[in-house]
Design a binder for these strands. Structure first.
Lengths: 337, 337
DNA sequence: ACTCTTTTGGAGAGCGCTCTCCAAGGAGGT
DNA sequence: ACCTCCTTGGAGAGCGCTCTCCAAAAGAGT
């Protein structure tokens, strides 16, 4: 690679045609005489030509990349400890690669980084944004919206606004859990909720409560956790102290459920015989947990893929109106309930 | 955002100066009269100007992004199930963000995708590549090398070649495990290795064997696994069948160790009383496992951050020769051994 | 007072590509 | 045979930015 990287011009010279013709062959736009095409192809081969991305995107106004913005709760790089983000990433990558688009990963945890994200998009470093945020108060959706950046959210925005998103019917998930407890005859049921400034947590709780009420249990003790194993354990300890006769717990994600199960076992309770536990998400820890968790499945990978699909579609047709796609949860019965 | 996005030209007109001056203010190159600077800043503010990334990188030949290429064993999007890749990503992102560089995520699992990766880099869509690969036979390092792409690997290349990399002293890790078994007086020790076409697996095994031999145990039963929970479980079952009196197992990663512990418990063995288990990596599952795993810590995040640092340095000084940075493992004692 | 250096702003040439506009040639209709 | 329409290649104008080269102005030295 001592030589300068060859340009269209070089190929054109070698092939004895104009720059335009080479461009047409490379991009497959318009008809080019098959024989000429052949000549050009050879010239490309011979020179080892690769189109320059910057030059191309300068005129096409497209980069072929999208920003995958993760606005984690705690922020920092810890976010990847939660299998959730790994699953989102997997789903997004899986879809995008079929379209030759690549995600650039960005964490938005501070105001500074949020500004950077908006700048990044405004200067056209990526064609659009996929925003995975948990907090309802997140300001990024609004900022991106009025920077005119094509955006799709994972989870509905904090305040209603004209932006596309995919989401899960979290309330239905809560109902699924309640139905399970009813099905196995549990009557002293409590719940460990996620952070209540997160829509998803709120909805899971609401759905659960309402279904429990409909089943004849107007009051369900609630303890708030932080979506981590440790916070689940702490919540379970508090719950056990206040409500020792509990025989069923709905925990708002699998990580916390794992912490809860640990505490339960440590207190000599059998799971599910003494206390049944239903988790949420159906992520790796649910399967790894002993006993394996009965949990409400959130099809994160599919949802993430759909999110990417919605963005790509919007990119191709800027006139399209915002769309929302809501997924249905599903109860996965294993050993814990 | 009805208006066209403003360009340098627009700002220059508003400020009543030349394009060059605005550029100088924006980039802070050369001296510009403070008062003029002020005027320009106002004009920028007023027009809402943001530099166009494509145009800039067309002339600077820099994009401010690097490719984070994951060439997973099984490939596909499953790679993120393994906490390892999440940790790498976290470490990389964590370092890059301090330098205003963003990673674009690419999976290379098929030959087609490998070609795409090389193309991507050759057309200057990113300034360099961070390559995380497990398999020794991976062809990407060589391809990137002779495409002249600045590259840093996680783990040494399959064949020696002039490329930078970070790695762990896996043999030392194996020795650490052997020392632990010696320390707790285990005499009937076996090991579950990782896939043997992976350098790291080989080295862990070699280090372990040699240390065991030095401790007076010339032969250590080996079963090969695939770095997944299920493969660890299967391996443990085989081991138990062939070698029922085993009282210590060194497992080449935590995921497999978890599977092994499950099987051990299911067979009525107590861990660590009957069989001590030492894992490798010290990732989330090690902590979540019951009992929590004694394991050899691989500082993945630090290593990944270092990998990013080496790349950034190489980007700034293209004359620099390839570097390698080897990290030392560390034994983390928990309950399982 | 004059020349020599240093500082600072402007002009303009690209960076490599796409795409519109033209022109030339061939096909088809009358 | 002529005219029109369609197909296909070339010319060249940018896309928005950086950076080198100049020139003008300001400061320094004698």
């Amino acid at each position: 690679m001592i030589k300068e990287t060859p340009t269209l011009e070089d190929v054109a010279r070698v092939a004895g045609v104009s720059r335009a013709t080479v461009s047409r062959v490379v991009n497959g736009t318009r008809n080019v005489d098959p024989q000429l095409q052949e000549t050009v192809r050879n010239a490309i081969e011979q020179t080892g030509y690769t189109p320059n991305h910057a030059a191309r995107s300068l005129v096409t106004r497209r980069t072929g990349t999208v920003a995958l913005v993760i606005s984690g709760a705690g922020g920092g790089s810890d976010v990847f400890v939660d299998p959730f983000f790994g699953r989102v990433t997997a789903g997004v990558v899986d879809f995008l690669r079929t379209r030759g688009v690549h995600p650039v990963l960005m964490l938005a945890d501070t105001d500074r980084t949020r500004v950077e994200v908006v700048e990044f998009l405004r200067q056209g470093s990526a064609d659009g944004a996929l925003l995975v945020t948990t907090h309802a108060a997140e300001s990024l959706p609004a900022r991106l919206l009025d920077a005119g950046v094509p955006t799709v959210l994972y989870a509905r925005p904090g305040r209603p606004m004209p932006v596309s998103y995919v989401d899960l019917d979290h309330q239905a998930g809560g109902r699924l859990a309640a139905a399970r407890f009813a099905g196995i005859g549990r009557t002293r049921v409590a719940t460990i909720a996620g952070p209540l400034d997160v829509h998803a947590s709120q909805d899971r709780l609401t759905g659960f409560r309402e279904a429990m009420a409909r089943n004849g249990f107007p009051y369900v003790p609630v303890v708030e956790g932080g979506f981590t194993v440790a916070s689940g354990a702490a919540a379970m300890r508090r719950l056990l102290a206040e409500y020792p006769e509990v025989d069923g717990v709905f925990v708002a994600n699998d990580l916390m459920a794992q912490g809860a199960v640990d505490v339960l076992l440590a207190h000599g309770k059998r799971v599910p015989e003494d206390v049944a536990v239903v988790g949420f998400d159906d992520s790796a820890p649910a399967l790894a947990c002993r006993p394996p968790l009965t949990t409400v499945r959130q099809p994160v990978e599919h949802m993430a893929a759909k999110m990417a699909e919605v963005l790509i579609t919007a990119l191709d047709d800027p006139e399209e109106r915002p769309r929302s796609v809501i997924f249905e949860p599903e109860l996965v019965v294993r050993a814990s309930a």
